[in-house]
Design a protein around this nucleic acid. Structure first.
Lengths: 347, 347
DNA sequence: CCGGGACTCTATACCGGTTTAGTGGACGGG
DNA sequence: CCCGTCCACTAAACCGGTATAGAGTCCCGG
């Protein structure tokens, strides 16, 4: 078993100074002679001293941790490459500064609110990252009433005093549509995320806007909960339409992959009979057949930037909104001129 | 802005008692008259008092949090449905008891060690869940030398004093093999996870054992890092063999889906020319074409049980090893009699 | 030679709980 | 009637840091 951890008092005694001075030395504050400071640091190192986070938390009123609450069905998160990459990015910002990430995954919005309240009332974290913004998101007022610092992922649709760290989906969706139109598609549908979620409705809006900008009829938009199951259902519905679309723009990769399966199952070839584009660039999309044309976002960079911005907010700095490199289209095989023979190499 | 949070001293003053007594009343300890206790609780509720986690942490030497360190490339995690479900399970055990999950995602094993050291030296958590056990896993000795409580996911291959919460992969792999053999397959390959990882090598071992048990020649095993990219590479290699396998058992779903794509791309039909089975039951596997035969594990239950076991360890109880319901096979469309016409409905 | 900064350092209060030693009153037994 | 016990409760130490008031020393200018 490990011996007792040394405390600041041990360092002080060993170095022959008061513990206050040790605290000053360790925190690089003025008022300590260079010589004494060197000695204190040497003793601290010698003793293997590392300050107690708990004591520091209590006396300095900080948690040294950030919170992330994910309110989605785990099954939906499972297929989605976004959060793991995002969290890895957050970590890369937190680890170097000794902060930690407190993660909550909750199923419904009621327990989501409870979770934020608990994080705040226990002062478990110094701030939170608000992801998956919704329409008139109540969390924006909530975190402020709870006194939690926060940043939002994307711009809310209501006035917000919180810095937004945003990655514009629009250009990605628009270039997907432009790409399809250029290939000759005219009936293009969109399988969207929930319209309650801002990224869901914004991707829809970008989709509609892209069509309008190209002087095309508005295409059908089927709303889903982002699950593969719902993506499959939406695809079935679209393929059953009298004037079925020749291309479908999906709001995420799992739905696109499910949609591909459904289309193939229904006897359509992709991209011959139907072109498909995904969103968020899952690794597996590259390897399916046909490889998925998709829109990639830099989720990891987003996580890092969001965490860094939140740390600055917590430190009391005023932080401006941050815009990341917009989503970009990656053209692979699932999109082609309508009627093209399938690229399947043999049968 | 919110007013100052009431402290235990406020409650004490308001109730006309000492703060020690309030502490006793709140923690259900003997030595408080029923009447006084009622009054104290009423006052506490009235004031909206909730004890400061920080103060409690400092004085009672507990963090009220568990740690989970995931040491994998985020890109590999992204496709894998395991962790999101597992974490949701952990959450479901923690939320009711006011504990939190501290999550770290690190890229390499060196920073993994550092992360555990930091969690311990900062006393950030009371215990950790060791996932992705490796051969002669150094973390088992590490956490003990750090004084961290822990449970392992699965049984280590070295002596361990830590309770193991296990879900036996074997039956899943074995029934996959049995299923394929029953269909008439004789040349069956396995695309395994890294042999450094115990689940990787155990799935391989179960695979080999299943073949041996059915008096079949050992099939080729190609080792991967669990990524879709590596699964694709392995599939290409296997299909290039002179006596190429007629079925492949993959160690996870993303690799199986990538393998399916590669096979189709190479001109093979699935399951006509090649049968495929996955592992871990991703949602999207149900919707691809052909739907993926896979092995499902109850990742969420695993998370809950692991967290509950760890909480008991932390509480000082002795905890026995726990066995969960073993993995089971889910037969869908990607496995069939060799040579069967593809189930594709039209071309 | 004295007063006033500047600089270093100490002592101590403080954060908000938990825990322990000890106090005062009621009550029962001898 | 006195003493010992038990019970409900208080006071204060304690966890390990941070922050602040103030003490001591040295140096400078007048």
């Amino acid at each position: 078993m490990v011996g007792e951890r040394p405390t600041i008092a041990d360092v002080a005694r060993e170095a022959g100074v008061s513990k206050g001075l040790v605290s000053f030395a360790l925190n690089d504050r003025p008022g300590v002679s260079a010589e004494t400071k060197t000695r204190i640091l040497a003793v601290a190192k010698d003793l293997g001293f590392s300050p107690s986070l708990r004591a520091r938390s209590l006396s300095s009123d900080r948690a040294f941790a950030l919170g992330l609450v994910i309110a989605r069905d785990p099954e939906i998160i499972s297929g989605d490459p976004f959060f793991p990459a995002f969290i890895a990015g957050v970590e890369s910002a937190l680890a170097p500064v000794g902060q930690a990430l407190v993660l909550s995954m909750v199923g419904d919005e009621a327990s989501e609110i409870t979770t934020y309240r608990q994080l705040a009332s226990h002062a478990r974290v110094d701030g939170v990252i608000l992801s998956d913004l919704r329409r008139a998101d109540p969390r924006i007022a909530l975190v402020q009433s709870l006194g939690l610092k926060a940043v939002t992922l994307g711009h809310p649709d209501i006035p917000s005093a919180l810095p937004a760290v945003s990655l514009d989906d629009g250009p990605g969706i628009q270039s997907a549509v432009a790409h399809l139109v250029e290939l000759g598609h005219r009936r293009i549908a969109h399988v969207s995320g929930p319209s309650r979620m801002l990224h869901g409705s914004r991707r829809s809006a970008s989709f509609a806007q892209a069509l309008a900008g190209l002087d095309l009829q508005p295409g059908p938009i089927v709303e889903t909960d982002y699950s593969a199951a719902d993506g499959a259902r939406a695809t079935r519905d679209l393929l059953a339409l009298a004037d079925r679309p020749t291309a479908i723009v999906y709001a995420n990769d799992p739905m696109a992959i499910a949609g591909l399966g459904i289309a193939q199952r229904a006897g359509f070839t992709v991209p011959g009979d139907l072109s498909i584009t995904g969103f968020d660039g899952s690794e597996v999309g590259q390897y399916i057949h046909p490889a998925l044309t998709t829109v990639t976002t830099e989720a990891q960079a987003w996580g890092r930037q969001a965490a860094e911005a939140l740390l600055r907010v917590i430190a009391g700095e005023t932080v401006d909104d941050i815009e990341l490199t917009p989503a970009t289209l990656v053209i692979r095989e699932s999109s082609a001129r309508p009627g093209t023979a399938t690229i399947r190499s043999a049968m």
